[in-house]
Amino acid sequence: MSVLVYTENWDGKFKKLSFELVSYAKAIADQLNTEAVAVSIGNVEEDELKKLGNYGAKKIFNVQDEKLKNLANQPYAKIIAQVAEKEDANVLVFANNFTGKAVAPRVSVKLKAGLAGGVIELPSSLDPFMVKRKVFTNKAFANIKIKSEKKVLTLFQNSFEIKETENAASIENFTPEFSDADFRTEVKEVNKVTGKILLTDAEIVVSGGRGMKSPEKWEPLEELAEVLGGATACSRPVSDEGWRPHEEHVGQTGKIIAPNLYIALGISGAIQHLGGVSSSKIIVAVNTDKDAPIFEAADYGIVGDVHKILPQFIEAVKEVKAEG
């Protein structure tokens, strides 16, 4: 028996999310009195792989093959299922991100394992296996029972605390069985945004709404994001109007994010918007209308004009940062 976690890499590196996943898998393994095992697909150096051990992975299966450089759902699922079978994994953990959502359902069919997507806590009971997950685009939670012998979970980002442990992991190269017939999709081109903090990764997100008044007035918002080391986002009306690119749209039908700090500038906070950001740990709202619904969701707020407040905000952050 074991708990298997799939740890995706980004250009050969892991990130916070990977460690969160391993910490989570390790905690479930503790509940089950078993071990957490990780599987990595793609080119990752040994030093980097070893990092996963610091969060409790006992063994790391390293799958390297030139063909597996880019995500292909079918072979990836096949490989992860092979490792799961080899290790007799009865719980599998994925991230609830693009890759996790692409691969986990396929693995779940292969293992005939019930799937719970977007889980936010450790299982509340093991028999029956009960776990809490987000439903209704984050407006509610459900306690779901997985009835099958094997279970597949995708973990909602930033919902589990990262825990370092004294542990050394062994690395095992794994040669999966697959054939050319498994590769029926091919990545032709990769366009990555570089040098910018990704919205879904960002600890701090600074977001603008219609209250920013016009697309030309975004500069101070971007500056605030920069001094805070955060990413920029926007509300739906703003992306619909073409003031900001669609990739920045957060909300129920846009990106769903859960940063540590979400700063909403000139966003009134329609229910659809809150659906995409309500999982943020701390929400700060700046709005001229003291009765805007965003203040209901916010932890801190200022009633006032965004453009008057922004310069002071930027200065204050700089000062506080300088104070250390």
Partner: peptide, 19 residues
Amino acid sequence: TSSAVGGMLSEMLEWPSVS
């Protein structure tokens, strides 16, 4: 919000999937 039906369906059909 399970994000699962499409992926499961592709595996059952043994077809490639792109997410």
